[in-house]
Each structure stands twice: as structure tokens, then as C-alpha cells.
Design a protein around this nucleic acid. Structure first.
Lengths: 220, 220
DNA sequence: GAAAATGTCAACGTCAACGTTGATGATGTA
DNA sequence: TACATCATCAACGTTGACGTTGACATTTTC
């Protein structure tokens, strides 16, 4: 908002002009920040932590970035848009049954979580603390998109129930919470490159969701 | 006698002596704090918020409570112990098969989440931000108990797999993350008294976990 | 009804994190 | 050589939240 200091002017000129080295260092800072946000939470992460992790003085960080919020916003930004875009692509494909759309969006999401790691996990982790209370335009926008995406998912589930591919005795909302609870909880334990891939996890979860975990009637 | 109005000394004397009104107000503060911790997160909640919600001056809160941390610790304390105790009770019952123990602990946990609302949800929400980084004795203790509890659950699942009651093609750890992902994610949407009860939710989730969500082969 | 205990708060000192300033040496560029 | 831009940081001012102090009313106790 109050962007009149000397350093912020220099930063803006620099950002406008571009400069490969400059952008690279900025990207590195973003990456480091995202990692720390995930590990310690946004509030608990100090700019000093970020600076130290990058081997810079705290003041130098401000040469690349306007504020802690800016780091946070850029970390999270785009993640939701990507998710919504993916969902819309599946809506457009009228060939698919709802259950298949649901499956695809589910797997796509998990893979996206993995690809954008740790950005998406920061989003999952922080939305309540940050966005839940705040009244800023940015926060409202994020909330709105979250709700939008939620409606799409719920729609898939309702449709799948109507088409006889999901049980009717469990409310759609609850089924959604079960399925995406499994998915979102991954932010507490999933680490890319360790153990199973995102795709494998998603497919196992999908299998549990649709077929369950109990041994079926012993089919050889 | 009147040892100068050293607040913390007065608080300690008061707490030692007891006093019904005093304890009641203290409990009310705890309740309010827990609610705010859940809504805004521990870090983002100021003592001023708590004081205002209680209709007191910020300084008055210190007559009942030593610090923000104390409120937090007391909010969370006991929850884990209760959970572990419940799990041990089920271990002691040698009559039960592992799958049944798992079912019971699952339902018990969800009911406990509901009963202790919002304390347990604060624990779920904050453990990373608070406990993950801190090195205090308290934090270490909580971490240790969390791991303990986790081991018990994992044991139940491994046993259930060995006894042929759960699929072998999905690793125990993953099954655990699926099941308790559904459960723990409730902290984002479940509100006691609204919609289904904790028990109903737990049973529906258990049904999904064991039987799945797909319509079986149309059994009339 | 005086003395003591109780609950309350206005005001204060302290500290940690934020974001800014102004200057410095380094690196190009004429 | 002279000059300009660059990346960096020591030091600063500011803010917001913490926890404490000391005194003031109100109630309790003797």
C-alpha cells in the first residue's frame, strides 16, 4: 500500500525491468519461504528465518520482496486457479460420467499437491488462520474460489449418487468430507520423493473410498 | 499480611486455596480461549481478544491465568491422555479382534472430539505450528504421546490385516492415514449440535472405510 | 464498622518483529 | 579514469502484544 520508500522504488524498477539473476534469486526466496511456512506456519515464520535460510541479511530480502504477505500470497496464488481450471476441464468433457470425473479430479488434485509442493500444503494449512478471519480483498477472493471449487466437487458427488454409482445412504456432504479429508490430510504426512508417489496414494485412497478396506467375500 | 498487590502472587494463593467462583470464572476463560484458538489459531489470538470476549480488562485475565501459553496448555492437556487411556482399555480387552478394537477406538475418538469440543480440534490444528518446532518439555511430552498413540493405532491395523480383516494390498500406514485423515479433517467442518452427531459421522466413515462408497452388485 | 480480602483496571516497561534509511564496496561501462 | 548501477547490510524508528504494577472500589469477615 504505502510504497514510497527508496528501496521499494528500486525494487519496483528492478522487477519491471526484469533481469534473470534478480528473478532467480527472488524465486529462490519464494521457495524458501514456502518451505518455512509449511514447517512453522505463516505467523510463526519470521522474515529473519527466511533471510537466514537464504544466507542474506533481513534487509536484503526487502530488495526482492515487499513484505511477508507478498511472499505468502505468491506462494498460494495460482494453486486454486489451477485446481478450478482442472475441474472445469472435466466439466466440459460431457462424455464422462460423474463418478469418473470425480475420480479424475481426485487424482489430479493429489498430483497437483505433489507438483506444487509445498505451496498447496501451505494453502491447506493456513487457510483458517489467515484467510478465515481477514477481511482483505485477497482473502475474500480466496474464500470465494474455495467455495466455488467445493460446489463443483459436491456437484460431481450428487450426480454420481443420482446415477447410481455411489451409495445413497450417506449424504453427499459427508461423502465429500470423507474423500477430501483423506486427501487434504496428506499435508500432515506426505512428502514428495519419499515412499509412494502422489498418484499411487490417490489411487489407493480412491480404491478405499469406492471399494472399502474390508476383505470381500474371499474371491480366491 | 498484604504483601503488596503482586498479582501473580495473589493469583497463586487464590488458585491454591480454591474458591468456587474463582474456578468458575477461570473455567469460563479457558472455554473462551479454546474457542478463539480454534477460530483464529493460537498465534493470531491475542489476550486482548480473550479479555474482550469475556468482558474483562486484559490485566484482569492475568488474575486468573499466568499466560497465554497456560491457557493453551490447559486447553490441550488431558485430551491426549484420555485418548491413550481409551486405546489401552481396548488393548486390555483380549476378547476383541483387532478390527473391532480399531472400530471402537475410531468411534470413541470422534465422540471424544465432540465432547471435548473445541479442545481436541485446537490440538489437531495447532500441533504443527506450536509443538512441531518448540523444544520445551511440554512440547516434547505432547509429541511423545502423539507418537505413542499413533503406534497403537498402527498396531491395530497391522493386526487386523494379519487376521484377514483388512486388505493386504494397501500398506498399513496408508490405511491409517486414510482412516484418520477422514477423522481428523472433521476439525475443519464438524460443529457439535449441527447436523449429524459425532457417533453418526464416525459410523458412516467406518462404513466407507470398510465397505466403500460404490454400490455393490445391486443386491435388490 | 473497621480490617482484610477480592475483583478490577489504567498505566507502564519491555521486547520482538516489522519495514526503512542511508551508506558501502563491488561490478560493470564510458 | 570516472561514473553509474548494483547487491548488500548496520542501524534506525515504529508498532503491537506481552505481562506487571499499584491503586481503587466492592464485598467479606471478625
Amino acid at each position: 500500500m504505502t510504497e514510497q520508500s527508496n528501496i521499494s522504488r528500486r525494487r519496483r524498477t528492478k522487477q519491471a525491468k526484469g533481469g534473470a539473476d534478480y528473478e532467480a534469486k527472488r524465486a529462490e526466496l519464494l521457495k524458501i519461504a514456502a518451505q518455512l511456512f509449511k514447517e512453522q506456519g505463516f505467523q510463526a515464520t519470521r522474515l529473519l528465518d527466511i533471510a537466514q535460510a537464504a544466507g542474506l541479511d533481513r534487509a536484503t530480502v526487502y530488495y526482492y520482496v515487499g513484505s511477508k504477505e507478498e511472499l505468502f500470497h505468491e506462494t498460494v496464488e495460482g494453486v486454486l486457479d489451477a485446481n478450478i481450471a482442472a475441474a472445469h476441464a472435466l466439466i466440459a468433457d460431457t462424455e464422462l460420467k460423474a463418478i469418473e470425473r470425480l475420480r479424475q479430479i481426485f487424482v489430479t488434485l493429489m498430483v497437483s499437491y505433489e507438483d506444487n509442493y509445498p505451496a498447496t500444503f501451505v494453502y491447506i494449512q493456513e487457510q483458517m488462520h489467515q484467510v478465515g478471519t481477514e477481511e482483505t480483498v485477497w482473502a475474500q477472493e480466496i474464500m470465494k474460489k474455495t467455495r466455488q471449487f467445493d460446489q463443483i466437487l459436491l456437484g460431481f458427488i450428487r450426480e454420481a449418487v443420482a446415477q447410481g454409482d455411489l451409495r445413497e445412504d450417506i449424504p453427499a456432504r459427508l461423502a465429500e468430507n470423507a474423500l477430501f479429508g483423506m486427501l487434504n490430510w496428506t499435508h500432515r504426512w506426505f512428502v514428495p520423493g519419499k515412499g509412494m508417489s502422489g498418484k499411487e496414494v490417490a489411487e489407493a485412497f480412491w480404491s478405499i473410498f469406492t471399494s472399502g478396506m474390508a476383505h470381500a467375500s474371499v474371491p480366491a
